[in-house]
């Protein structure tokens, strides 16, 4: 394999990994606060793709208008999900809310199949993302370089938010102890809603970048990315934001290089994530950057 081709694969891997990272952040933040695996997160991502199709194809909106609109709609959907499926179960056992999450996921998938049919639709073309650039013998879409840069910027922003703002401090407090956070006067429902806003917003951004790479939109399109990004979040240490980004990139890079070096294994591309998950859980169950939870009594 020549250097050029290797670089090409490396770039692709990082870019796919960045997309995983965007979705994985949503999983990890919600888990960090609610200890809930938001199984419907991948389906929020799917709905965001449909929103884009409606906005651009059906309502003929220009991209600059459609972009903020679909991010907003996805955020509203995420908040609605939290309000209706998770908030009523705030004091219920963890298993109940988990089951509610699985139910919400199926609801989205089947609702989408019912409303939009199972026939794949094409994602609208966004020229400034899909344009192909050639440097030497390497050629790539612009989205390939935009994705990692965007993820880096988002990561820096999120870390600043979590570590250096009052809201972030409240998030960290709520993630440890609901009741004591309440005693501080923190409105924990607002803090929880804020994490869903961030997670859903990032899923919407992820869906736009995803659409530029893989243009097929169908009701079950969120399932596999959802599962893989969940694996990425666990791999990096669930509850840890930089961990989710790291996990996403390792996973994206890993599966891309696996297929590049062993073309015979192409069919096992998706299996890679799960092999990684199993190995990680055996070797280091807290994930790469996860902290060991020690409960001091």
């Amino acid at each position: 394999m020549s250097m050029d081709i290797f670089l090409q694969h490396l770039l692709n891997g990082i870019s796919v990994g960045s997309l995983y990272a965007l979705i994985a952040i949503g999983y990890t933040m919600v888990y960090g606060i609610l200890l809930l695996i938001n199984f419907a997160h991948g389906d929020i991502f799917m709905m965001a793709s449909y929103f884009m199709i409606f906005a651009v194809v059906d309502f003929r909106m220009p991209i600059w208008l459609a972009l903020p609109l679909i991010i907003l709609l996805t955020i509203v959907l995420g908040m609605l999900l939290e309000r209706s499926a998770y908030k009523p179960l705030r004091n219920a056992p963890r298993m109940s809310i988990m089951i509610s999450a699985i139910g919400a996921s199926y609801l989205f998938e089947n609702l989408a199949t019912y409303l939009f049919t199972g026939v794949p639709k094409g994602y609208p073309d966004i020229p400034w993302l899909t344009k192909v650039v050639n440097i030497g013998s390497i050629s790539f879409q612009i989205v390939t370089v935009i994705a990692p840069v965007l993820v880096a910027a988002i990561l820096i922003g999120l870390m600043a938010l979590v570590n250096h703002t009052k809201t972030g401090m409240a998030m960290r407090a709520v993630s440890k102890d609901f009741e004591t956070a309440r005693l501080m006067g923190i409105k924990i429902d607002r803090v929880i809603a804020a994490t869903f806003v961030i997670g859903s917003g990032l899923a919407a951004i992820g869906s736009v970048l995803w659409g530029a790479k893989y243009s097929s939109v169908y009701p079950l399109m969120g399932v596999m990315p959802g599962l893989k990004c969940f694996v990425a979040a666990v791999f990096g240490g669930i509850g840890n934001i930089p961990g989710a980004v790291l996990g996403g990139i390792v996973l994206g890079l890993g599966e891309t290089l696996l297929v590049a070096f062993f073309p015979g294994l192409t069919g096992y591309r998706d299996a890679f994530a799960f092999v990684v998950l199993i190995v990680m859980l055996l070797v280091r169950p807290n994930g790469l950057l996860g902290e060991k939870t020690t409960d001091k009594v």
Binding site: K166, M169, A170, R172, A173, S175, K176, D177, E179, T180, R182, L183, M184, G185, I186, K296
Partner: peptide, 29 residues
């Protein structure tokens, strides 16, 4: 709490992942 009643809970329940200073600041949330 906003009206001016506060509780020091049983078992202290400081936020272990926040610094001492942050714990004080969050008391004045």
């Amino acid at each position: 709490v906003e009206k001016g009643i506060t509780l020091v809970p049983e078992g202290r329940r400081v936020f272990p992942n926040l610094t001492v200073l942050e714990n004080l600041r969050i008391g004045a949330y």
